[in-house]
């Protein structure tokens, strides 16, 4: 259980740092069950609150002793992390370290991979997302995802953004939602006069921002980004980084990146993984200047990976 303890400590450290924002959110929340500002862990069978140490109040996403394996071979081992609400959390590590696998586990995208299995708990707002009565579809509506390569639908720019809310039964003003999502994704000015053109007509960087707008249109709690800039040139990458900067605070962002400079520029917390294991997690500034573990130091100073 030492790993869990470590996770707890790290979580608490995060809580202390951001505690100023917590009452704010909790107080304005109108939901009864949410009155204490604490995540709701109700009495679902198999996920009794007693045996799930609840994360700190502003932990939006947490893992508890998570092991992810493909056909029995573990790709991620015993990972405990707490993702803070409103933060940008970067997961770094050499290729094949399991960082994307871990990310895809947060919204159960690994469900589509034959032979993938998860043990341990992934808690979203304190709720075990692998519990039998949880609908992965509902989960993914609240935890959005942006992929390595821009993958707009073969539809118009407008429909790319509107499709998700339409499928989700959105009853508000669709034009307004599309505009707001595109504004939030810093794409509105470039596309406002060509909303009826196909999404594929945009440049790579614009396509990726369209994919971000598509995810934001679902007003997700968390936005997962799997190396979103790996297929983009430096200028397009810079724009995506600015965009992520602007999302900080409103959305909780978890970004997987192989680019250490990127992680150090944009993230509040950095998670370092190596060979499927969580090596170190902490405030980004500390991880990059004063890491505790030798492996972390070797990696961030470019000695391997």
């Amino acid at each position: 259980m030492t790993m869990v303890d470590a996770g707890e400590r790290m979580g608490q450290a995060g809580q202390a740092e951001r505690s100023a924002t917590v009452p704010d959110r909790g107080a304005t929340s109108t939901l009864e069950s949410d009155a204490g500002g604490r995540p709701v862990t109700d009495a679902r069978p198999g996920a009794a609150p007693a045996d799930t140490p609840p994360g700190p109040a502003d932990t939006v996403l947490a893992t508890r002793d998570v092991v992810i394996s493909y056909s029995g071979a573990p790709a991620v081992r015993h990972v405990d992390i707490d993702v803070q609400r409103g933060d940008v959390t970067a997961i770094i590590g050499p290729s094949g370290c399991g960082k994307s696998t871990l990310l895809r586990c947060f919204n159960r995208m690994n469900d589509f991979i034959e032979g993938a299995g998860v043990t341990g708990q992934v808690l979203f707002e304190g709720i075990d997302i692998h519990a039998s009565d949880i609908d992965p579809v509902e989960l993914r509506r609240r935890i959005g995802m942006v992929f390595q390569r821009p993958n707009p639908f073969p539809k118009t720019i407008y429909d790319n953004v509107a499709w998700g809310p339409r499928m989700g039964g959105y009853s508000g003003d669709m034009d307004e939602l599309v505009e707001r999502s595109l504004v939030d994704a810093a794409l509105w000015e470039e596309v406002k006069d060509k909303l009826k053109q196909p999404g594929h007509s945009l440049s790579g960087g614009q396509q990726q921002r369209l994919c971000i707008a598509r995810a934001l249109a679902m007003s997700p709690e968390v936005l997962l980004m799997d190396e979103p800039c790996s297929a983009l040139d430096p200028i397009a990458t810079g724009r995506i980084e600015e965009l992520i900067e602007s999302l900080r605070g409103r959305y909780s962002v978890v970004i997987v990146t192989h680019n250490m400079q990127q992680a150090s520029r944009i993230s509040d917390t950095t998670v370092f993984m190596y060979q499927g294991e969580l090596i170190e997690v902490g405030p980004t500034a500390r991880i990059f200047t004063n890491p505790e573990k030798q492996q972390t130091e070797d990696y961030v100073t470019g000695r391997f990976g």
């Binding site: 919204n107 589509f112 989960l139 993914r140 959005g144 942006v146 992929f147 499928m167 249109a217």
Partner: peptide, 21 residues
């Protein structure tokens, strides 16, 4: 391409919504 399916599932499409649309 699988990326199309991922895009749809990633924003909370059900299987049939993904297949149908």
């Amino acid at each position: 391409p699988d990326s199309l399916r991922q895009a749809a599932y990633g924003i909370g499409a059900t299987r049939w919504q993904c297949v149908r649309h």
